[in-house]
Amino acid sequence: MNAPAPTKRSRTGTVRRPGDLAFSGASLGSAVLILLILAGVAFFLVMEALPALTAPGEEISGGEGFFHYVWPLVFGTVVASLIAMLLGTPVAIGIALFVSHYAPRRLGSAIGFVIDLLAAVPSVVFGMWGMAVFAPRLVPLYDWLDEHAGWVPFFGDASATGRTLMTASIVLAVMILPIVTSVSREVFLQTPRLHEEAALALGATKWEMIRTAVLPFGMPGVIGGTMLGLGRALGETMAVAIILSTGPFTWNLLGSGNSTIPAEIALNFPEASGLRLSELIAAGLVLFVITLAVNLFARWIVDRRAEFSGAN
């Protein structure tokens, strides 16, 4: 009898084929690699940030310690990203629903294509457009807000140039539109036809059908897309650095002032050295932690409803 080439058997007796071994090894390797890279980045940030974190307060910029230095930047970063998310997400969901459920197919795919093009515009272009074209046109709106809603602490004296944290936030909202739209559109298109028909057969109007079947089914995906967008907004550097005329902390989002972590790093990194460099890297570490926390929070929200996700 011509015996086949001996194959290795594991202790449980399953045959171990070389192709399977190579493939599982390769995928394990990729998974380990991403963990190593992440750990490496975290290690680098912590090591380089240590001097700034441990230095006496008076040696840090501003003279009152690292925390005092970094919190206005955190405020700027988080507020700009939140405003971008609040403004961008509803519009993105609207576009995604229009493309997936309302538009005739041709129009839908044309709009989808344009949205994807928006994602290909470099952020520096958004920055220049925001500074030169968009910011001046927002000034009348800011004046109006200042006049009629001035009691809101965020709406103070309007800047004459419009190069404010609010303008940066609005441009960020435009920048996160494509990713949130694209992810939402994909999950809305995945809604099983059976569920849509179930809603319609109960006498749902189109909007009610979307509310009962499409939106709940797509919610984990929309949250995922929003987090990708938020990640982009948190880390966006060029657009903010160009648009915002940075300055010290102020509650007033309509005037000059404030800054974000990425913009602060980008604007100061080239000339920084020694402790100043360490400060900037420590600011980067703070941004890293914020991003991580946001993603964990999103994951928690999605998992909380896993039982009802439709994946079973």
Binding site: P192, L194, H195, E197, A198, A199, A201, L202, T212, A213, P216, F217, M219, R305, F308, S309, G310, A311, N312
Partner: peptide
């Protein structure tokens, strides 16, 4: 009212 070929309860609802 209508009942379909494959059972289709809404997965996101109790």
């Amino acid at each position: 009212g209508m009942v379909f070929q494959r059972p289709n309860p809404f997965p996101t609802m109790s």
